[in-house]
Design a binder for these strands. Structure first.
Lengths: 231, 231
DNA sequence: CGAGATATGTTGACATTGTCCACTCTAGCA
DNA sequence: TGCTAGAGTGGACAATGTCAACATATCTCG
């Protein structure tokens, strides 16, 4: 009797229904992506890791694309969270902005494949665009930067008003593209070594902020900075 | 008789040996990459396009990786050529630098998949590194920028000497990462619209150059800017 | 000039993958 | 209690990267 029940309980430990396969698959994908630093893993591999049949994931994602979209969204949330945390206990707006930049670059350098998945147009299919969750996360990140700027990170406060949109977007364009480029050059080892990341980021950033204090490039009308609002 | 010979001549028009399959395959890859904007095409598709058996490409490339490396190298050469051409008939070093930047960004935006292949660490395998031809092309590009800087693009001439290495590398780091980031944000439509590319590039660039005229961030010792010399 | 040797191409095979379809199980609601 | 819809399973299929064995053209050297 004991034997039988134990047999059942050990063999059949995994119930027919997994419980939260969606989350499990996304986490497995994040793991594999981080380990292999490549998006060329197979859905079947994830299924294997999750201990389910090769087709189970298709009940939660219509596509490999969709799965990668979910992974990307998690990446945005992680990055935004780190940026937000990095500014805790910092008062000076400029220091807050610098801390965010540092967190941003380090996040990207520490997991290039994830960063590339997030920004590298894997889902740049001209048809549908990116998942809403991605756009939301990206806007949250932008909001953090806008806040620091409006608080005076560029020398003087710049209120986050309609009238200042072009100015703020100009500043963010410079800031973002500089950090984005630095992140990717470091991640791809076109600039290095990696253990100088923080130092390089700080140096480049200070020069850039000084430049922005002096003058902020104009952004032409009709330009957007951040994911487009309309699909 | 006529029929037979014609049959033979038309059917057997393609000799057993292709002639220059290597080049043909690379060009086909460039075509497919440019059209599909994805590196996920198949070697077999290229073979089909070249009118050759599915395994013929393997006589010229050990790997899909190696093929993509060759494509990337061509991309570097194309980009360097465009940058060089853009500076023709321009005298002012600053104008030359601006023209190069514009050519660089436009090149990337016009073919994002190729640009991403070149810089996006598809061949960042921690083992072997990038093909020599790629590194050479990247250094040629860097040389163009160095020349403009030493000619005085940043307000005063900065001789390309050992003593100035850190200064020049600092300037190039700022310049390159800014343009790299801008290119990718535009390519991935995180900034747009695309038809404002030149305007945006010019504005961002002028601000950046003004900043560099005032002060060039120091680059810590041991930092490299450009592909590492040692594998 | 003629015969290996050497590239270069071809055919066939295999494991793996994304994805479709038909089926089964199980939980929850009527 | 029994049905239904969601969740998981197994099999099938075409496509792909890559290996191995074979075929053919070109080169080389006697």
């Amino acid at each position: 009797m004991d034997g039988m029940t134990q047999d059942i309980s050990t063999k059949d430990q995994r119930p027919y229904h997994h419980g939260d396969l969606h989350r499990t698959i996304v986490e497995a994908a994040l793991d594999v992506l981080s380990e292999s630093q490549s998006t060329e893993f197979s859905l079947r591999e994830l299924a294997r890791r999750a201990g389910v049949s090769h087709n189970a994931p298709y009940k939660h994602f219509t596509d490999k694309r969709e799965l990668l979209g979910a992974v990307s969204a998690v990446g945005f949330e992680l990055l935004a969270k780190r940026m937000a945390e990095a500014t805790r206990e910092l008062d000076s707006p400029r220091e807050r902005l610098a801390a965010m930049a540092s967190a941003y670059v380090c996040g990207g350098v520490n997991n290039p494949a994830l960063y590339r998945l997030m920004f590298g147009g894997y889902l740049a299919g001209q048809d549908d665009g990116r998942p809403a969750i991605e756009r939301t996360a990206a806007y949250n990140m932008k909001a953090l930067v806008v806040e620091a700027i409006s608080d005076g990170a560029l020398g003087r406060p710049i209120a986050d008003t309609e009238a200042n949109t072009r100015t703020i977007d100009g500043a963010i364009l410079v800031f973002w593209s500089q950090m984005h480029g630095l992140t990717l050059l470091l991640a791809d080892r076109l600039v290095g070594p990696g253990d100088k990341t923080k130092e390089l980021t700080a140096n480049v950033l200070q020069g850039m902020l000084d430049g922005l204090v002096n003058s902020i490039p104009a952004v032409p009308e009709g330009v957007w900075v951040g994911p487009p609002l309309a699909g």
